[in-house]
């Protein structure tokens, strides 16, 4: 199978380009919000856009492994950036919820978190992301060894929490949430069948020898 990979000498620069490109929609939404370009309810629109970008980058981060397994496209060098960009969007989404949306009124925020399943799911996703963000460095990978891999499997429950947080927050099911649900189901479902696919590929390689 043909293998795609960015030449090593461009890799560092392309990772930085990804950070810049990935965070751009968030800054653009902020700019639109400041200058009245987000419609009649700019706070809600800004909050929602940040949430959508978080969900999209979570999906992209978890698409790296299946892309390599199935199409030979190796984007592993970008996975940390994809995950961290998602984390920054989640933090911004949460910060906007606390400040611009709920106005830092703690009673209302605590009531929300304790009573509302979709807010609980969002909070759970954020809490699970924190250890992943904190250990997304070479030192932690070396220190944790195989436990790092186990820890970072949290990405799957995080993605499920994120998409359910979105789907449960809306009034009626339309095409958009169905598309996100389908993508997330495919990404998480792939994890379940992956061992069998890898066995089959290994078997073919042995036969080819």
């Amino acid at each position: 199978m043909a293998t795609f990979a960015v030449p090593p000498r461009y890799r560092a620069a392309s990772v930085w380009a990804l950070y810049a490109l990935g965070l751009l929609p968030g800054f653009y939404a902020f700019y639109l919000g400041i200058y009245g370009g987000l419609g009649a309810d700019p706070v809600r629109e800004f909050e929602h856009r940040l949430g959508f970008w978080a969900l999209r980058f979570l999906c992209l981060g978890l698409a790296v492994t299946p892309l390599r397994d199935l199409f030979g496209t190796n984007l592993i060098a970008y996975r940390r950036a994809l995950g961290l960009i998602a984390f920054y969007y989640v933090l911004a989404h949460f910060a906007v919820y606390l400040t611009l949306d709920r106005g830092l009124i703690l009673s209302s925020i605590l009531g929300d978190i304790l009573k509302r399943p979709y807010i609980m799911l969002g909070m759970a996703g954020l809490l699970m992301l924190i250890p992943l963000a904190l250990t997304s460095n070479r030192w932690s990978i070396r220190k944790l060894g195989s436990r790092w891999n186990t820890l970072h499997k949290l990405a799957y429950p995080i993605l499920l929490a994120a998409v359910l947080h979105y789907v449960l927050s809306i009034k009626s099911i339309t095409l958009e949430p169905v598309i996100y649900l389908a993508i997330v189901t495919a990404l998480v479902g792939y994890r379940v069948v992956r061992p069998r696919i890898m066995d089959w590929k290994r078997g073919r390689r042995l036969l080819a020898r």
């Binding site: 902020f30 919000g33 400041i34 200058y35 009245g36 987000l38 009649a40 309810d41 700019p42 706070v43 800004f46 611009l100 709920r102 106005g103 009124i105 209302s108």
Partner: peptide, 13 residues
């Protein structure tokens, strides 16, 4: 209240 915020800020609930 729709329209109370100027841009992103000042639209308290």
């Amino acid at each position: 209240r729709i329209g109370e915020a100027s841009g992103l800020f000042g639209g308290a609930r």
